[in-house]
């Protein structure tokens, strides 16, 4: 007993260090394995509030740029409006209610914190559970794909941006539908990679990459980027395509969170299928 006390006394610094280090590693391990599920709830959005107040000041400096990108987006959306098209037939207007059922809703949000240079980058936005945001929703900017919602508190949400080693987004080449998985290798915040694209499909440098409908996160055809370079993967059967991203994460200020109304239905159906095996 005396020896034990002596031991504890002699090495108390080491024991303290060991205890704290193991504690941090356990926390690190837990959150890495449970997708950082509710860290935002523990800190009570304190950090988010801090960044929001800092941001409300610094946003004044980039108002012009924000306006420009929003105007550009407005112009693009106007061009897609029904009255921008010449109507070729008469059937569309009468059956529109039964043929088209809304599947996606968009929730606009401002970015309060963002990083682009870490290996795993996260974005914090100023909308949360009270605004209808849930985990695993897709997020886009005015130019293209941004990321996926990972954790939500009442007023804030964090997004795993496309510039993150854990983000994998299902995507395809727009012109022929050759699909692959968009992953970021950590080199350049303007460039990501589309991996595992079948070699036999013809792809050219400059082709546009868009989202496909394999996942429930994004509608089909949300722009991602253009092919910048193509290389063969190690096994020689697949291309790895370098994609120049449309979204400039450095200047990103506003985003839209996508709510897929039919997501639960699709997921349930797919889960039933898994039970069959």
């Amino acid at each position: 007993m005396r020896n034990l006390i002596f031991f504890l006394y002699k090495y108390y610094t080491f024991i303290l260090f060991f205890f704290l280090e193991v504690m941090s590693l356990v926390i690190l391990y837990r959150y890495n394995n449970y997708q950082r599920a509710s860290f935002l709830n523990y800190t009570g959005g304190m950090a988010s509030k801090f960044y929001e107040s800092v941001n409300s000041a610094s946003n004044y400096l980039s108002l012009r740029r924000i306006n420009d990108s929003l105007m550009y987006e407005n112009a693009r959306l106007r061009a897609q409006q029904l009255n921008a098209y010449y109507q070729n037939g008469f059937t569309l207007s009468s059956i529109v209610d039964t043929v088209y059922k809304q599947q996606y809703q968009y929730i606009s949000a401002n970015i309060v914190n963002n990083s682009i240079n870490k290996r795993n980058n996260y974005i914090t936005i100023d909308k949360g559970r009270l605004h209808g945001i849930e985990t695993d929703m897709g997020v886009i900017g005015s130019n293209g794909v941004v990321g996926i919602v990972t954790s939500v508190s009442d007023h804030y949400a964090t997004i795993r941006s496309a510039l993150n080693s854990n983000t994998k987004i299902s995507a395809m080449v727009k012109k022929n539908g050759a699909f692959g998985s968009l992953e970021w290798n950590g080199d350049n915040p303007r460039v990501s990679s589309l991996l595992h694209v079948n070699k036999h499909v013809p792809v050219e440098i400059g082709d546009e990459i868009v989202t496909n409908n394999y996942s429930t996160l994004f509608p089909v055809g949300i722009p991602i980027g253009t092919i910048k370079e193509k290389t063969l993967e190690a096994e020689d059967n697949f291309y790895a395509l370098d994609v120049a991203l449309f979204t400039d994460f450095n200047t990103l200020k506003t985003v839209y969170v996508i709510r897929n109304i039919l997501k639960d239905e699709q997921k349930n159906l797919e889960n039933n299928l898994k039970g069959d095996h």
Partner: peptide
């Protein structure tokens, strides 16, 4: 200090582990 840093960069445990080791 690691904990404070973690809170503001929403990286639970990451800075804590690094600074504790460095302090030791």
């Amino acid at each position: 200090i690691g904990m404070a840093m973690d809170t503001f960069s929403s990286t639970p445990g990451l800075h804590m582990a690094a600074t504790t080791f460095m302090g030791y």
